[in-house]
Design a protein around this nucleic acid. Structure first.
Lengths: 210, 210
DNA sequence: CTGTATTTGTTCCCGAGTTCACAAACTCTT
DNA sequence: AAGAGTTTGTGAACTCGGGAACAAATACAG
C-alpha cells in the first residue's frame, strides 16, 4: 500500500515525542486518513493491535518497516547529476532509513570526477559495473526528458527492476519492471487547475444564475 | 483531472514531432492509459474531436492548456532554498508553461541576498509583501519537515490557497486550501515494497506449496 | 467476579471511476 | 452518390476502494 510510508512517518513522530501507545484514531488523524481505512490497512499486515488499548508504537513501527522492506539495505544509483540530481544526492531522506546511494552517473564527461555528497560522479557506461558491484535494484532518473527512455532501457538491461523517474516523460518498460513518476510541473499544473476553478466559481455567480 | 497534464505533455511531444492530427488510441498509448478513458476525459471538456478523423493536435493542446489554466500567468513563491529549493528555482519546467517564480524566501539570514536563478533570496518575513506585490496564489514548501507547518500556516494567513509541499510532513490546513505532497523517500519506500515482494515470490515457491 | 467502557478487526454497502461495446458521425474510394 | 471503413462520444456493466456500523476482545471499576 502507498499509505504505509505515511503511517510510518507518523509513528516515528510519535516515537520521537515519547508516545508509547496510540489508538487507530490518533494515528489516522496524524496521517490524514479515516480511522477505519487505517485499521483495514494494518489488518492486512496481521493483527498487531490490542482491542481496548490500541497499537504499541515501537512494535507497529517495526512491523511496518519490515513490511515495506526497510529492515534491509537498498542500494540506489542516481543517473543525471544536474540541479535535481545534485539535490537528490544530498537529500538526507534517501541516505537514512535503509536507502544508500552507491553511485552517481552522468553522461557529461566534463563532470566526471566531481565529488557530490561524498561520491564521485562516474560515466554512465559504468552502470553495469555498479549494478554488479553493489547489487543495485533501484535506479533514479534525474536526466533531461530526452535522455530518460535510453537511460531506463539501459537500466533494465543491467537488471534494475525498480525505477524512480523525475524526468517529465512516460517511460515504456517491460513487464515486471516498476516505474514511479514524480513530475514536478504536473503537480503545479494540477494546483493551477484547482486554483482556477476556485476563482471562477467565486467570481462568476451571475453566469450560473442566467 | 490529474491526467490532463500527462495528455498535454504527450500532445506537446507530438506537436514537436510534426504530427498534426492523432487518434484517441495514439494519444492514449502515448499517455499510458486506456483509450476509452482518454475519450471520456476529453469529452468532459467538450467535443473537440472529429469522428472518423481524430483530434487536431494544436487545437486540443490549446483547449487542455486553457482548461488547466496555463493560458494565464501563475506567480509562484518558493520557501526554503536548500538543495531542493535550489533545484526547484532552477527547474526549467517551472518557469516555462505559465509558471513564474517571483520570489525565493528563506529563514536563514546568512543566505539573504544570495542570487539563485536570477532571483535574490529574501527573508521569510517578506512573504506578505511578495503575495501582495505579485498576486501569488501558489506556494512551494521546500523547507525541513520541522518548519513546514509554520510556513504553511503563514502562507494561508497571507492568502495563498494552493501549496506544493516537498517536506516530509502531513500539513493541516483550513477548508478551501489545496495541498499536494511530493515525498521523495515515500516514493522510494513504495518501490522497495514492491521490489521486496518480487524477490520473495520468486525465491520462496517452496513455502507456497507447503 | 461481574458489568461497563473502550478499541480493534471485519462485514456490508455504496459510489466513484474504469472498461466494454456500440451507435452516431465523418472520410474516402469507386 | 452510395457503401465501406474509421473514429469519436456515450450508455451500461463491472470493479475496486472507502466509510459506516457492528461484533469480538480487552481493560477497569466496584
Amino acid at each position: 500500500m502507498a499509505r504505509l510510508p505515511v503511517y510510518l512517518r507518523a509513528l516515528n513522530s510519535m516515537s520521537d515525542a515519547g508516545t508509547t501507545t496510540c489508538s487507530s484514531l490518533e494515528l489516522a488523524t496524524a496521517a490524514g486518513v479515516n480511522s477505519a481505512k487505517l485499521r483495514k490497512d494494518l489488518s492486512h499486515l496481521g493483527s498487531y493491535g490490542t482491542r481496548g488499548v490500541g497499537y504499541d508504537v515501537a512494535y507497529l513501527r517495526y512491523q511496518i518497516s519490515r513490511e515495506i522492506g526497510l529492515t534491509q539495505d537498498w542500494p540506489v544509483v542516481v543517473v543525471g547529476i544536474g540541479n535535481l540530481g545534485h539535490a537528490l544526492a544530498n537529500y538526507s531522506g534517501f541516505s537514512s532509513r535503509g536507502f544508500r546511494t552507491v553511485a552517481l552517473l552522468d553522461a557529461d564527461e566534463s563532470r566526471h570526477g566531481e565529488v557530490v555528497a561524498g561520491l564521485e560522479i562516474r560515466p554512465f557506461e559504468d552502470l553495469k559495473q555498479v549494478v554488479a558491484d553493489h547489487g543495485v535494484g533501484i535506479g533514479v532518473i534525474a536526466t533531461p526528458a530526452i535522455a530518460a527512455q535510453a537511460v531506463a532501457d539501459r537500466m533494465v538491461e543491467c537488471g534494475i527492476r525498480s525505477v524512480l523517474n523525475f524526468a517529465p516523460t512516460i517511460l515504456s518498460v517491460p513487464e515486471g519492471v516498476d516505474v514511479r513518476r514524480v513530475d514536478l510541473s504536473s503537480e503545479l499544473q494540477i494546483l493551477a487547475y484547482h486554483e482556477q476553478r476556485k476563482n471562477s466559481t467565486l467570481s462568476t455567480p451571475v453566469e450560473d444564475v442566467s
